[in-house]
């Protein structure tokens, strides 16, 4: 490989290497480690939690809003269901939907950003203005417009949140790629007659992994808040399913009597989003360090 295109090998180190450098650097910061610990905690809770739930999340277990007892360690919720069991079951939907939505937003955003940066034509202008139009709405308003028309469907939630994530990802991707598309190895690939798709995703994409990692963690934090928020408003996961956002909505009327039904999910979402944003901050500091010449080009 080095024998064929030495220039390309110098300009763009093999796939994975800049990423490993970034991750290793980010890991050195205490805040990244704290972030990883927090996220792992909440993910473990969401994934393994249901196996330890003493009751079914939907069965009637006690008097509504009854206080904590030996049978119901965190008391009962607004309909008399076990708060602990619902809490243990309620993380999967938040995490799963947010991950799906972020992945979708990344896929769309990266594709649009790459095409815009590489096109060097009016297409660039058109695509980025289209992104601006989506950005003219606060994400939650766009999501609410969609829910008002179609109804509260989970696939719609993923679609809309992904859709509102895409423009920001597209901007970052385009910004980072603009300089890459002018490099020698891209021209070399063009001269070799590689397909457009291969140039975009095989040549340019690997060179912008650092800014994309930072953006991905930011967008994930944001998607978690948006998805949980929509469930909290009553337009996401529907009853009687157990979901942290929905639980807060169901139990907030009883805050004065029995706060755990709302407080536990609030704590879990807070820990999760603080964790992901600490990781994002660690990554972005490491990426800035690399840009300033700390890493090898």
């Amino acid at each position: 490989m080095t024998a064929v295109a030495p220039a390309a090998a110098v300009a763009a180190p093999p796939v994975g290497r800049p990423l490993t450098i970034l991750l290793r650097r980010a890991w050195r910061a205490v805040r990244t480690k704290v972030g990883v610990v927090l996220v792992v905690l909440v993910v473990a809770l969401a994934v393994i939690g249901p196996f330890f739930a003493p009751h079914s999340p939907t069965e009637f277990a006690g008097i509504p809003y009854s206080h904590a007892s030996s049978a119901l360690p965190l008391g009962a919720d607004n309909l008399g269901r076990d708060v602990l069991s619902r809490f243990l079951w309620g993380g999967r939907s938040v995490l799963g939907l947010a991950l799906l939505a972020t992945a979708l937003g990344l896929a769309i955003g990266v594709s649009i950003g790459l095409v815009a940066a590489y096109s060097r034509s009016i297409l660039d202008d058109v695509l980025m203005r289209a992104m601006d139009v989506i950005l003219a709405f606060p994400s939650i308003v766009l999501a609410l417009v969609a829910v008002a028309t179609v109804g509260p469907k989970l696939w719609l939630l993923v679609l809309v949140v992904g859709f509102t994530t895409a423009p920001r990802v597209a901007r970052v991707t385009r910004g980072a790629s603009l300089e890459i598309v002018e490099r020698d190895f891209v021209q070399a690939a063009e001269a070799l007659g590689e397909s457009r798709t291969r140039i975009l995703f095989g040549e340019i994409l690997p060179s912008i992994t650092s800014p994309l990692m930072v953006e991905a963690s930011l967008r994930l934090t944001y998607s978690i808040g948006l998805i949980a928020g929509l469930s909290f408003l009553g337009f996401g996961v529907q009853p009687p399913s157990a979901d942290w956002g929905l639980m807060i909505n169901e139990n907030r009327q009883g805050l004065t009597i029995q706060p755990w039904g709302a407080v536990m999910p609030v704590i879990a979402i807070a820990v999760l989003t603080i964790g992901t944003s600490l990781i994002g901050d660690g990554l972005s500091r490491a990426a800035i360090g690399l840009e300033r010449g700390g890493g090898e080009r």
Binding site: I224, G225, A228, G229, I269, A270, T273, I274, S277, D281
Partner: peptide, 11 residues
């Protein structure tokens, strides 16, 4: 500030 920026408003 980092922690506050991460938290959704309803939380």
């Amino acid at each position: 500030m980092l922690a506050l920026a991460a938290l959704p408003e309803f939380v």
